[in-house]
Simulated scan of single mutants.
Amino acid sequence: MKLIIVAVGTRMPGWVDEAFSDYAKRMPADCAIELREVKPEARTTGKTPAQMEALEAKRIDAVMPQGGRWLALDERGRDLTTVELSRQFQTWRDDGRDVGLIIGGPDGLDAALKARCDGLIRLSSLTLPHGMVRVLLAEQLYRAWSILNNHPYHRA
Rank of each mutant, 00 (worst) to 15 (best):
L128N: 02
L55K: 09
A138R: 00
R97F: 11
V16M: 07
P152Q: 10
A115Q: 15
L120R: 04
E75I: 11
K58A: 12
T45L: 15
V83I: 09
M1T: 08
T127E: 02
G131C: 09
W15N: 04
I5N: 02
K47F: 13
Y23K: 06
L3W: 10
A115W: 08
H154C: 12
A57D: 02
G131H: 00
I147M: 10
C117K: 00
K47N: 03
C117E: 05
H154K: 12
R134I: 07
L80H: 07
A50P: 03
Q51E: 15
K25C: 06
N150V: 07
R155H: 14
V135L: 13
W92Q: 04
G105Y: 03
L136P: 01
Y23E: 05
M64H: 03
T45R: 15
S146R: 07
D95F: 11
E34F: 02
G9Q: 02
L141K: 00
V38Q: 03
A112H: 13
H154F: 15
W15F: 13
G14E: 13
I103C: 06
G67M: 08
L55E: 12
A54T: 04
A29C: 01
M132G: 00
A62H: 05
N149K: 15
Y153Q: 07
R97K: 15
R76H: 12
I4A: 01
A72G: 08
T81M: 03
T45G: 04
M1R: 05
E139C: 10
R116P: 07
G100R: 00
A138S: 12
L123R: 03
D74R: 13
V16F: 02
F20Y: 11
D17A: 09
E34L: 13
V99M: 03
F20S: 00
I121A: 01
H154N: 13
M27E: 01
P49L: 13
A54Q: 02
P106L: 00
V63I: 04
V83K: 09
I147F: 14
A112D: 08
A144T: 12
L123A: 03
Y153M: 05
A42K: 15
A144C: 11
K47Y: 12
L80S: 04
P152G: 06
R122V: 04
S146P: 11
I33R: 00
G46E: 08
K47I: 07
G131M: 08
P28Q: 09
T44N: 11
L3D: 08
Q66D: 14
A57W: 10
D61K: 08
I5Y: 02
W92K: 01
A19L: 14
C31K: 00
E34K: 09
V8T: 13
G96T: 02
R122W: 00
G77T: 07
A138H: 03
M64N: 01
